[in-house]
Simulated assay, not measured.
Amino acid sequence: MSTADEFRRKKRATIIDVGHAAGVSDATVSRALNRPETVSEATRQKVQQAIVATGYVPNALAKAMVSGRSQTIGALIPTLDHAIFSKFLHTLESELSAQGFNLVVAVTNGNRDYEVSKAKKMLAMGVEGLIVSGLSHNDELTSEARRYGVPLVLTSYYQPDHAFPTIGYDNAKASALALDHLVAHGHRKIAVVHGPLVGNDRTRSRIAGLQEHPAAAGLNLIETDLSYAGGAAAIDRLTPGETAVLCLSDVLAMGALFVCQSRGIAVPQDLSIMGFDDLDPSKFVTPSLTTLSLPIAQMGQHTAAAMADHLMTGKPIRSIELPVMLQARASVAHRQS
């Protein structure tokens, strides 16, 4: 049996085992691993050979205990069922990894109490920062972040006067931009299809932006499940004379589009449909979906950069507003007289 096999069978090898195998102190092993320039080449070679012989692998937890740094960030996300959050996490993890940080993720299902519970577990693990979605959270979440002294960043929202930094977009301004586009195409009676308002401050902000718009009197607000089926069901709740449907999610818009096609309702000739998100499929449905492009990848990049820069240099994290872009495609047409 090899030395490495013996160590694996008995227990996980430590730097003490490496030191015994190399004939040096465990302090010398630590220097060879963490500050190799402080030991001789011959010593580094002996330590490396002992690492191979013992099967030693570094213990990240032990290193964190010694250094006081976990190099880990926690992200609390409402769901992974929607591509918006998956895209954000993909970019966030890539950017943090490039800066030497790890990312741990917890799904909260939009439940604030569950979010607090998950955050406490992350903080107990030693995460150095927390990233959450939206502005609405239990006071206990923010108090725990303060108690542990870790930065808390709120995403998918921009509100510069908030107590914590926000990195995202102005949801009210974005919905107003969408309504401007429909009004410019002659639509005055417009159905607005949206997901549940409870637990989703982003949707509430988008609705508020629409209600403050000069064309608000012509809007019919329809709340439904945030799903393809929910978008399809909303078509049955249109009122006579409505010529356009503004969906506050591409998922809802595509559900509405699919049911219109199945019923022989021509889009956009009979009914214009507009989405919100610019998910990848929106480009490829027929007709291609007019929508708003949210800066999800940029949000991940900026959040990671701000968090990493703060933890490495102490630079304060500032709120950042990212632009929302109109993607004018084929599902919206000028209202027929």
Rank of each mutant, 00 (worst) to 15 (best):
T72F: 08
S272F: 04
V153I: 15
T155V: 02
R188T: 15
P281H: 01
V116N: 02
G19K: 01
T290A: 03
Q336W: 02
H194Q: 15
G241W: 11
D180K: 12
A53E: 11
A191V: 07
I84S: 11
R69L: 01
L326Q: 09
Q336D: 11
A124L: 13
L246Q: 13
A306F: 09
L219D: 06
H82F: 06
T313H: 07
V198S: 15
S67W: 04
T108A: 08
Q269V: 08
K10Y: 08
V132P: 05
A308T: 00
D170S: 14
T155G: 01
A172H: 04
V107D: 06
N138S: 12
I190E: 13
A217Q: 15
H90N: 13
G186K: 08
V18D: 00
Y114P: 09
A4W: 05
T290V: 01
P214V: 13
N200H: 09
A217P: 03
S293D: 07
A330D: 15
G168N: 10
L179K: 06
A304D: 06
K120Y: 06
S97Q: 14
T313F: 00
S288A: 13
P281K: 03
D277R: 02
A145L: 04
A32E: 00
D26E: 06
L248Y: 10
P295S: 02
L103S: 02
P281N: 03
I273N: 07
R206M: 14
N34T: 08
S70W: 11
T28D: 01
A60R: 14
G231K: 03
G100A: 01
D5K: 14
G100F: 02
P316Y: 09
N171L: 12
R12G: 10
S331V: 10
H302Y: 10
L210Q: 05
E6R: 15
H82E: 10
Q327A: 05
I265S: 04
L96I: 07
P268M: 09
D5P: 01
H302M: 14
H213E: 13
Q336V: 12
T28S: 09
V245Y: 04
P78A: 09
M254T: 04
L130D: 03
T43C: 02
G168L: 09
S293A: 11
I320E: 14
K46C: 04
H302R: 15
V245A: 10
D26L: 01
R146P: 01
S272Y: 08
R8N: 00
A124K: 15
R12Q: 13
S175Q: 10
L179E: 08
A244T: 10
M1P: 04
L182F: 12
D180S: 10
L141Q: 08
D81N: 14
I207E: 13
R204W: 07
P165W: 11
G218P: 02
F7V: 02
Q261A: 11
Q71D: 15
Q298F: 00
L322V: 04
V107M: 11
F85N: 09
R69A: 06
S175M: 07
A174D: 12
H194K: 14
A234T: 09
S319W: 08
H213G: 03
M299S: 06
P165K: 13
E41H: 05
K11M: 00
G68I: 09
L279M: 04
G149H: 03
V105K: 14
K63I: 01
D277V: 00
V192H: 12
I167V: 11
D309N: 13
R335T: 02
V251M: 07
G134S: 06
L289W: 10
H90S: 14
N109G: 02
